[in-house]
Amino acid sequence: MINTEIKPFSATAYKEGKFVDITEKDVLGKWSVFFFYPADFTFVCPTELGDLADHYAELQSRGVEVFSVSTDTHFTHKAWHDSSDTIGKINYFMVGDQAGNITNNFNVMREGQGLANRATFLMDPQGVIQAMEITAEGIGREAEDLMRKVKAAQYVASHPGEVCPAKWKEGEATLTPSLDLVGKI
């Protein structure tokens, strides 16, 4: 999936009190996060989505848009948003994918269940996947780690020839792969 382009889709999302139609064209031209989760009104999902909501302003400041996706409808997303304090703080797109088109495009549909796996995809402004993470049902994701990956991907994109080592944080040293560096790390 890394270095593959987003596939065409159309869906309706709930965002800031409105239903909005979106397509893959809405992703192009900016960095994007597709954040798949199994279902609304569940247990681990609201902890992840709330954590992501707490980092949304920082993501926006970096030119990143967030699309959370489940196979629930946009109506269900609105009901959850209206009934949960944690989900109520979400300002990013909550995409309804009841037909499973987007979930299948990213190959994260649970066979025979109609639910998405926990999966995160970071896409560059050309709609190309630069990072991904998929976890098992009971393993929640952390937005702070996603932020680190966003910063690293944006750094690498704007500094050709440099790479970010493990645990890299913004402002720290990077590496420039070369023959002279082989065996020196």
Rank of each mutant, 00 (worst) to 15 (best):
M1G: 10
I2R: 01
N3G: 04
N3P: 03
T4K: 14
E5H: 15
I6Q: 10
A11Y: 01
A13F: 09
Y14V: 04
Y14H: 04
K15V: 03
G17S: 04
G17F: 02
F19C: 03
V20G: 07
I22L: 07
E24D: 09
K25W: 01
L28A: 03
K30P: 06
W31L: 00
S32H: 01
F34T: 02
F34G: 02
F35T: 11
F36H: 12
Y37G: 03
D40S: 13
F41G: 10
V44L: 06
V44D: 00
P46R: 03
T47Y: 01
L49M: 08
L49N: 02
G50P: 10
G50K: 07
G50F: 05
D51I: 08
D51F: 10
D51C: 11
L52H: 06
A53I: 00
A53C: 05
D54L: 14
L59A: 14
L59P: 06
Q60N: 15
Q60V: 14
S61C: 06
S61R: 15
R62D: 09
R62E: 05
G63D: 04
V64D: 12
E65L: 14
F67V: 02
S70F: 07
S70Y: 05
T71S: 13
H74L: 12
F75S: 06
H77S: 02
K78P: 06
A79I: 08
A79Y: 01
W80Q: 07
H81R: 12
S83Q: 15
S84G: 01
T86F: 05
G88S: 04
K89Y: 10
K89R: 12
N91P: 02
F93V: 00
V95T: 05
V95I: 06
V95S: 04
D97Q: 06
Q98R: 15
A99Y: 08
G100C: 08
G100E: 01
I102K: 04
T103Q: 12
N105K: 07
F106Y: 11
F106G: 11
F106I: 04
N107P: 11
V108R: 12
R110Q: 15
E111Q: 15
L115D: 02
A116F: 05
N117A: 15
T120S: 13
F121Y: 12
F121Q: 06
D124M: 02
P125L: 05
Q126L: 11
V128C: 09
I129T: 11
Q130A: 04
A131V: 14
I134G: 12
I134C: 12
G140Y: 01
E142D: 15
E142M: 15
E142T: 14
A143N: 09
E144W: 13
R148A: 13
V150E: 05
V150Q: 05
A152C: 01
A153E: 08
Q154I: 01
Q154C: 01
Y155C: 08
A157V: 01
P160C: 05
G161R: 02
E162N: 08
C164F: 09
A166E: 15
A166N: 15
K167Q: 14
K169C: 13
K169R: 15
E170L: 11
E172Q: 15
A173P: 12
T174F: 03
P177F: 03
P177C: 04
D180V: 13
L181F: 10
G183W: 00
K184P: 05
